[in-house]
């Protein structure tokens, strides 16, 4: 029940994200998600050894909850980028889509009966992954892409909890590496682009290669 409460809070952050327009609040929500993920993982994996726990702590609180958001915040400040550019899809639709994703997650998980799958994590992870993908599809801005990517990554983390209580170290390291590469590459890239960053669209990335 307690784990589920934390998952619930996690899903609430998704709803808040859905109607947020300020970049700063996005980052705050990412921080909160990081902390919540640690709580969830901790409750779930209490019995595993200290090294793993420390690793999880590092991954969730330190990296997901602290380093990455702070890094992005630096970027935000440097580029003076405070609001998400309006996307074509209205916020109204976003709120509905994400609520639908949450319900869909529950519906889907209630229909799957598999001993190896923990439904509650599965439900939340589905919703989170969909939200992440949604942000990446709807917004054409790089920054939002990074955020969408991070949300999706959190979803994958939850998914890894869903498939087995013993989290394989290797998978985790891979996820971590993924975040690093994604954020750093995109971030450094975005920083280099600098001035045009605010209006930077993913479509332009392709052109920059040449």
């Amino acid at each position: 029940m307690t784990t589920f409460s934390l998952l619930l809070l996690f899903e609430l952050t998704l709803i808040i994200l859905s109607f947020t327009e300020r970049v700063k609040r996005f980052l705050t929500m990412l921080m909160i998600q990081g902390v919540l993920l640690f709580g969830i993982a901790y409750l779930q994996l209490q019995h595993i050894n200290a090294l793993y726990l420390a690793f999880i702590l590092l991954e969730t609180i330190i990296i997901k909850g602290l380093l990455v958001p702070l890094f992005l915040n630096q970027m935000r400040k440097r580029n003076n980028f405070n609001r998400l550019a309006h996307s074509k899809v209205s916020t109204f639709i976003t709120v509905m889509a994400i609520s639908a994703a949450i319900v869909f997650g529950f519906l889907l998980s209630s229909n799957i009966h598999d001993d190896n799958l923990q439904t509650k994590f599965f439900a939340a992870s589905i919703a989170t992954i969909i939200t992440g993908i949604y942000f990446m599809i709807v917004h054409r801005n790089i920054f939002t892409h990074i955020i969408g990517y991070l949300i999706m990554e959190n979803g994958v983390f939850l998914f890894s909890l869903a498939v087995g209580s013993e989290m394989p170290m290797l998978v985790n390291t891979a996820i971590l590496l993924d975040i690093f590469v994604g954020v750093l590459v995109l971030g450094i890239f975005a920083n280099r682009v600098g001035d045009t960053f605010k209006n930077m669209h993913v479509d332009d990335l392709a052109q920059l290669k040449h």
């Binding site: 327009e21 300020r22 700063k24 609001r83």
Partner: peptide, 10 residues
């Protein structure tokens, strides 16, 4: 105050 700034911007 985010709510205040939101009103002013744009």
């Amino acid at each position: 105050s985010v709510s205040h700034i939101e009103r002013l911007e744009n």
